[in-house]
């Protein structure tokens, strides 16, 4: 069963990553759901997979042959957290669509555009500066640099 779980996790992961790498925000979301499932499966599988009854203490108070309870609790926590995160992301995709007008991530480059205009008279070491310096050198006349009287 471990091998089967591993293969399943691998397939889900591959599908998830494939979707995540797509340029569509909704597909990204699908991919995210898939790899979240992978994480849950991995935790679950790590706790040992044997067919067993649910981890409930019987009337006798004796616990025998039940499944590993700890990973179950972890997975439960992870599922609920994942739901919160994924719902948020879904809403974000919706808002991005409403506001930016695309769900194509390549078209979403607003936040990293350089403010192209470099200052004409302010750049500390802009390329212009160097050219100006070279020109000044050929003229070779130094003006008065004193702040004045």
């Amino acid at each position: 069963m471990e091998v089967l779980f591993g293969i399943l996790a691998g397939v889900l992961m591959a599908g998830g990553v494939w979707l995540i790498l797509s340029r569509n925000l909704l597909k990204f979301l699908f991919g995210l759901v898939l790899i979240s499932n992978v994480a849950n499966l991995v935790i679950f599988a790590s706790g040992g997979v044997t067919e067993g009854s649910p981890p409930l203490v019987g009337k006798s108070g004796i616990v025998e042959g039940v499944a590993n309870s700890l990973p179950q609790a972890l997975v439960l926590t992870a599922i609920v957290i994942g739901f919160g995160l994924v719902s948020f992301t879904l809403t974000l995709a919706l808002r991005a669509w409403q506001s930016i007008g695309t769900t194509h991530v390549e078209e979403m480059c607003l936040s990293e555009q350089r403010a192209g205009a470099t200052d004409e008279n302010g750049g500390v070491l802009s390329v212009d500066d160097y050219a100006q310096l070279e020109r000044a050198r050929t003229v070779n006349s130094e003006q008065s640099m004193e702040p004045g009287r």
Partner: peptide, 19 residues
């Protein structure tokens, strides 16, 4: 929208790291 665009990247990458 600029902030939302930044947020998409922030959220996407951080979720991957979380998983």
């Amino acid at each position: 929208k600029v902030q939302l665009d930044g947020a998409v990247k922030y959220v996407a990458i951080n979720l991957v790291s979380t998983v």
